[in-house]
Design a protein around this nucleic acid. Sequence first.
DNA 1: CTTTTCTTTCAATATGTATTGAAACTTCCA
DNA 2: TGGAAGTTTCAATACATATTGAAAGAAAAG
Lengths: 166, 166
Amino acid sequence: MDLKDAREQFIQAWGTFGSAWGINRSMAQVHALLLISHEPISTEDVMDQLNISRGNANMNLRALIDWSLVRRTMKSGERREFFEAEKDVWKVATHITRERKKRELEPLVRLLDELEDVPGSTPEAKSFRKMTHDLHDLTTRLDTLLDHSTRRDVQWFVKAASTLLK
Amino acid sequence: MDLKDAREQFIQAWGTFGSAWGINRSMAQVHALLLISHEPISTEDVMDQLNISRGNANMNLRALIDWSLVRRTMKSGERREFFEAEKDVWKVATHITRERKKRELEPLVRLLDELEDVPGSTPEAKSFRKMTHDLHDLTTRLDTLLDHSTRRDVQWFVKAASTLLK
DNA sequence: CTTTTCTTTCAATATGTATTGAAACTTCCA
DNA sequence: TGGAAGTTTCAATACATATTGAAAGAAAAG
C-alpha cells in the first residue's frame, strides 16, 4: 500500500472510530489529517484534502483547539493561520479523556448522587436506590481513576485501579 | 423528588449518556428501565413506559440481549416473554466494555498494525509511520488492559496498568 | 385445522445532526 | 481610508440514523 492510500485509510478509520464513540466524523477526520501531517497546515489545506467546506473546516478546527488537541501557529511572512496537532499520543489520550469526563461523566455522577436518596419503601423504590447507589459508586471510582490517570501519575493510577477492582 | 420523577430522570440521563458515547438513545433507555425494575417486564410494559413503538422496543430488547445485558425470562402461566437486566453493575460495565472493544477497538488495532509498514523515506512518510506506530502501541495496551480487566483479574489489571503507564 | 396471542421484519417516514456556502466580520497593508 | 486576504457565523439544506406501524411469521390453545 502506498502512502497516499494509507493516509486515506487512516483518516477514514479515525473518522469511523470517532463517530462510534460520539465524536463527529469531520472533527475526527480533521484531527487525523493533522496528526499525520509533518508540518502545520492551513484551513485551505484541510478543505482540499478532506473535501469539506470552509465552514466545516473552521468549525472543527476550533473545536479541536477547544479540546486542546490542536494549536494555531503562524508562519512568518504568511497572513493566514496554520494548525498543528499535539503529536504525543499519551497527551492526546489525556486531553480526550479529560474533555469527555468533564462533558459526560461528571453530570451523570452528579445526578446519581441526587437520585440515591429518593424516598419510599416499596420494592420499586428499593430497587431504584440500590441501582443508583451502585452506579454512583462505579462512576465515581471511574471518575477518580481517570482524574489521576490523566495526570500521568502512575502511583495514583495503580492505586486507584486496585480500589476500583476491590 | 418522588420516585416517578426520579425514575424518569434516570431514564433520560442514561439515554443521554448512552448517546453521547455512540449507543442509541432508545437502547440505553430500555436498558435504564430494566435496570430499575424490580421484576422482569414485558415488551408491552417497555412500550408503555417509554412511549415507543413495538418495533423499536423489540429491536432494542434484542440488541440488549445480544450485548448480554438483558435476559429473556418466562413467567409461569404467561404466554409472552419477560425481560430482565443484569443488575450487577460490574458485570454491566464488563459486558459493555467487551462488546465495544470487540466492535470498535479491535478493528482499529488491526488497521494500525498494517499501516505501520507503509514504505517511503519522505518526512510525510516518516511522520505517518511514527504516528501509526505510537497509536498502535497505545491502542494495543488499552486493548490488553481491557481484556484483562473484564476478567476481573486484579493482578493482571494492575500489572497491565503499570505497563500502560511506563 | 383454525384462531388467538405474541414476536419479528422492514419499507416508509420522522428526527436529529452535520454540512454547506454566502454574507458579515476582522485584520492587515498600501 | 479603501480594499485585499483571511476568518467566523448561521440559516438553509443535506444526510444519516432511529422510529414507526402494518403485515408477515410463529407458537400455543381451542
